Each structure stands twice: as C-alpha cells, then as structure tokens.
Computed example of a mutant assay.
Amino acid sequence: MTKLETLLSQYAAYHLDHKNILTHFVGIPLIVFSIICLTARAGVMISGLEITLALVIMALSILYYLSLDRIFGFIMLLVFALMYPLAHSIAQWGWVAWLSASIGIFVVGWVFQFMGHFYEKKKPAFMDDVIGLAIGPLFVLAEMVFMLGFRKDMEHRMLQEAHQQRALMDAKAAHSVSAS
C-alpha cells in the first residue's frame, strides 16, 4: 500500500457508514472553507501582492497532498483555487459580519460531522490521530473520485484495509468493556 492508501484506510476505518460519508461531503468542505475565510483576513503585502495566512496554509496543504499523490494534490489545488476568491471576499466584510459568517459556517460544518458520527457510532478519526484533520479533505475527494468510477483499485485496497482496522478497533473496544 502507498502512504496515501494507508492514511485513507486509517481514516476510512472511522467512516464506513454511507450516511456518515455523505455528511462529510457537506461538513468537511464547510469546515475547510470557514478556515480559509478566517485566515484570509490576516496577510501582508509583498511587492504589491497580498500574501494571506490562508494562502500559506493552502500552499502547505497542497505540497503535502502532492507528496502523497500528484493527481489528488492537483485536484485539491483546483478546489482551493475555486474556494479562495469567495473566502477572500468574505474576509473583506466588516469585522462582525466576517467573523459571524466564518464561525457560523465552521459550526454548521461540525454539526454535519458529528451527525455522521452518530450514524457511524464511532468517534471522529482525529480524536485518535490529529493527522485525520489533514486527511479528511483528501478522504472526501477520494470518495468523490471513487463514486465517479475512477481509481477503483485504490478504493478496493483502502476499504479492505479499513475493514480490517475497524475489526481490530471493535475487538479492542469489546475487550476493554469486558475487562471493566
């Protein structure tokens, strides 16, 4: 398995219920967008070009995603490029409107996330491994690519490993309950 497949498998072990995956299709993009909105306000001008914290975060994320997979990294670059102008526009609103909208979007995104985990009956992946916060957007992208019929071999390997990891998680949870 590639590093990407390993990371997606670890994340997928917490996301095997289709209702949970569907809520993540809404929740994760909202959370990512809200973070871009929040960080697009902080910036500096360098040679007439505004470099915002959002651009730095997106660039670092893209470099990480590209290191895992060039195709997914490039698609995430396009997604960020489409999100940024609207987020930057929101960041130009008055302080109260910008902060209210950004935090509101963030909260709504997390409501969707936790609704999904209610269906899954599992805590979010990032509670066991903080890298889940970075992998979540890539997981949603991968699921979309898989739904469109692409990279099915990767999906198969990822799901096979995710089911094995989930079985281990469930066995460990059952053992700790019986030991109590």
Rank of each mutant, 00 (worst) to 15 (best):
M147C: 07
L141M: 08
E155C: 06
L82Q: 08
V130F: 00
G43I: 11
S178H: 03
F80H: 15
V108R: 06
F118C: 10
I46Y: 10
G132P: 10
F106K: 01
K19H: 12
V79E: 01
H18E: 15
F33I: 07
E120D: 10
R166L: 07
A81R: 02
Q165R: 15
M169S: 11
Y14V: 07
S180N: 06
F33H: 07
Y11P: 09
A179P: 00
A179I: 02
Y65W: 06
I31S: 09
M1S: 13
V26K: 00
L133C: 07
M144L: 15
W95E: 15
M115N: 06
E143N: 10
I46E: 06
S102Y: 00
V56H: 03
Q164L: 13
M58T: 07
F74C: 09
Q113N: 12
F74S: 14
Q92D: 11
D170E: 15
D170Q: 14
M115R: 10
K122G: 01
S47C: 02
G43P: 13
I57L: 12
H24M: 04
K122C: 02
T39W: 04
G94V: 09
I103A: 11
H88L: 03
K121G: 12
G73V: 02
A54K: 06
I71W: 03
L55P: 00
L133I: 14
G109A: 08
G116N: 05
H15M: 08
L82Y: 05
S47Q: 09
M147I: 02
M115D: 04
L53P: 00
M45H: 05
G132S: 09
F74T: 15
A54R: 06
Y119M: 05
F106Q: 10
A174P: 06
L138K: 05
F146P: 12
L159P: 02
L22C: 01
E5F: 00
V56D: 04
K121I: 01
L30Y: 03
W98Y: 06
Q113P: 11
G48C: 08
Y64V: 11
S34C: 05
A59V: 09
L99D: 03
R151P: 02
F72W: 01
K172A: 15
M115H: 04
L99P: 04
E155Y: 05
L30C: 13
F146I: 08
L38A: 12
